[in-house]
Design a binder for these strands. Structure first.
Lengths: 160, 160
DNA sequence: ACGACATACTTGACATGTCAACCATTCATC
DNA sequence: GATGAATGGTTGACATGTCAAGTATGTCGT
């Protein structure tokens, strides 16, 4: 570790250097995710939809007319089912998603995107895409590629 | 963009390639942060302290006996004051933090770490440090350095 | 066919973020 | 030095995570 004061140290008002490079990297990941998450939330705000709700709508659009069971949605979002149930409760209340018990397995509840949900996605897709580019635009394509690679490695290690 | 299916695509069950490298990188950051956050939370769980509470305790230990005003804590955590107030409410309830109105500026509330809080930090510091190393240990020191640099660039761009 | 176990949720309780509204104190400026 | 604006915090309301417990359905072994 160098003796210089890192950017992150300044951000969190910490005088003493990080104990390890790992520690600095971990805090960097968490903090950057917070910054990016808030940045994305702001573009969705005018449409009265949260990032997670947007996320679910995109997943359901990808699933097509058959819909997806609650737990499958949760796996893709890395979220436990209680959170998913309630998230979808709100989307159903807004008329953007419909729910129906599966016939093959009556324990499952299939969630499908409804026309108003598709409309909303149509309206804001472009905005969110542009926002992603803005959020990472300060990195060159090669740097983005390297970042993706490093993050993939971290997650791969944690799946086992 | 290549035609290969990326690691992240597989994780989220998405068949169609990402619209842009930026989009893949943004999702990678958010998802990796979730994974790492949960990993850290598990080591704190037995001590009945959440990652955010641990975070505040470390900040307050760094601040020494004078303590810090609520808003200053919030800035360092990237959190708004309502969240900080309630977070500290819980730490006060556990006896790990004490609060006192400042004499110079009676609007401010100075928060200080109490002896039980210091004890707790003493018990779990080493565990958390080791956990950080575990969380990022699959990357070489140079890779960690590069990751830190890339994340710093992203945040720097968003502060303006 | 029946009971034990597993699966797919749902509900309740609580921590965390975030917005809007509010109170107390301080500052700026006339 | 009184008054209106700014600052520091708290409270209320609601979305999101997460654990524990409960319900309905399905599966398996015998």
């Amino acid at each position: 570790m160098s003796d210089e004061v890192s950017a992150l140290q300044r951000e969190i008002g910490q005088k003493r250097p990080f104990r390890s490079r790992s520690q600095e990297a971990v805090l960097g990941i968490l903090r950057t995710a917070d910054v990016v998450r808030r940045y994305l939330a702001r573009v969705l705000e005018p449409y009265d939809v949260t990032p997670q709700q947007y996320n679910v709508l995109r997943i359901l659009r990808g699933a097509g007319t058959e819909g997806l069971p609650t737990l499958t949605i949760g796996e893709r979002m890395l979220e436990d089912s209680p959170g998913v149930t309630r998230l979808i409760d709100r989307l159903v209340a807004k008329g953007m998603v419909s729910r129906q018990r599966s016939r093959e397995d009556r324990r499952q509840v299939l969630c499908r995107i409804a026309p108003p949900g598709l409309d909303l996605l149509g309206q804001i897709n472009g905005l969110v895409d542009a926002r992603d580019d803005d959020a990472l635009g300060m990195l060159t394509p090669d740097e983005q590629k390297e970042l993706i690679r490093l993050l993939d490695r971290i997650r791969a290690h944690h799946q086992a």
